[in-house]
Write a protein that binds this DNA or RNA. Structure first.
Lengths: 214, 214
DNA sequence: CGAGCCGTTGAAACTAGTCAATTATTGTGG
DNA sequence: CCACAATAATTGACTAGTTTCAACGGCTCG
């Protein structure tokens, strides 16, 4: 299901540096904001490469709470699920184009798959460190620094996710996320071009705040 | 380094059902409480099977805080580290006997290794869900239920780890861990034979408290 | 232009952390 | 084997930080 192209952001334009060359080999599938890519319990067997856009991976808890375990951005690959069945939901957060690679049928564990799995595990461990720490300002700082780095390392962060997504990812409420961002702004560390667009003014300070982890 | 045999608990006696048969193939190495099995930054390449005892896997943060990412108990296998270098410390928490399997030299990813890696990843994801939740009572309840199940599912839990270990694992202080355990006791859910020995009186209630996750 | 969602901000309630004191357990040496 | 020292765990009082509840502002879309 596609959505209207009214959300004017960089996520609309497919830059996809590597996608051009392989477009005829792996057709790009489009997803609009909130579109489900796969659901918890479904059979797994595909890897997805994000040509442009952003995806959230999450799990629903019995009481309605949601734990977002990962975000994936342009150029990244996701979809590695254990046991052949998805443990999580994957949803596009903005207009997103994906290419897929099948990996289950032959049952072999290719080098690529192992690498994806390893990277996912490292991410999970890093994430654990972030979620496990106390301070909300630390969490948000680390989160912003990470997204900045994964988006190319300029000084502008384009957040494809809502405050709710960030909260469910960091184990905070949207209010606390919002307050932390406001505090970073008041401290002069960042500037808000809009709610979803953050300009990093003092990168060293941002790192410093989150610099408890090794 | 061995320690004195003064700690009277079930961790002293090597039952090791599978160990007897393979003792001549894989010699058992002994570790006493607090002994380091491997350190962060060391070259990795071994899998360890716990014949008897218990091990904690953790990471040190720059400010001295410690994040315990996993516990491993009798019969379980650990040591899967990415990139050929350990990202974590592994230490015995009680008298522990280990057998080792080499996996790096040939560079292949055997079925066994993949399974260990997958299990580790699932654990990491589950752990993330626990640490990400708010309530301390929930965390401790889930923790106790998990250890109970991994120890065979009777109604007695033998905790090989200290309150500090539990706190660093769940993202809580030792005081909060202690208070949560006391509260579970006051609620009649558990009984404390000693600080390290918990009798589960109402398993359904224990699950119920932690039963927010799917 | 109005509805609705998202995000921000404020105040109160509550949970977990911190500091401190007490009790229990373990280990050591006489 | 007991006494003492050291460590681990519990408990209490207080503080700090986060959640909750609520109201408001702003942006988007029909």
């Amino acid at each position: 299901m596609q959505t209207s192209a009214s959300t004017m952001s960089k996520y609309l334009m497919p830059p996809a540096p590597r996608a051009r060359g392989f477009a005829h080999i792996r057709p790009v599938t489009f997803y609009g904001p909130e579109d489900v890519i796969y659901a918890q319990g479904e059979r797994a067997g595909l890897l997805y490469r994000i040509e442009y856009g952003a995806v959230r991976i999450y799990r629903l808890l019995a009481d309605g709470r949601r734990q977002v375990v990962a975000f994936y951005l342009t150029g990244e690959t996701f979809g590695f699920e254990v046991g052949g069945v998805n443990s999580f939901y994957a949803e596009a957060m903005v207009n997103t184009g994906l290419t897929t690679v099948e990996y289950l049928p032959d049952g072999t564990f290719g080098v690529e798959l192992v690498e994806i799995a390893l990277k996912a595990m490292v991410r999970a461990q890093e994430h654990l460190l972030v979620v496990g720490r106390q301070n909300s300002l630390e969490k948000v700082s680390i989160f912003l620094a990470e997204i900045l780095e994964r988006q190319g390392g300029g000084d502008v962060i384009d957040l494809p996710m809502s405050r709710t997504d960030i909260g469910d990812y960091l184990g905070l409420t949207i209010e606390t996320v919002s307050r932390s961002i406001s505090k970073l702004r008041d401290m002069g560390v960042i500037r808000l071009r809009s709610a979803r667009c953050v300009v990093v003014l003092k990168l060293d300070k941002l790192h410093q705040i989150g610099e408890h982890s090794v």
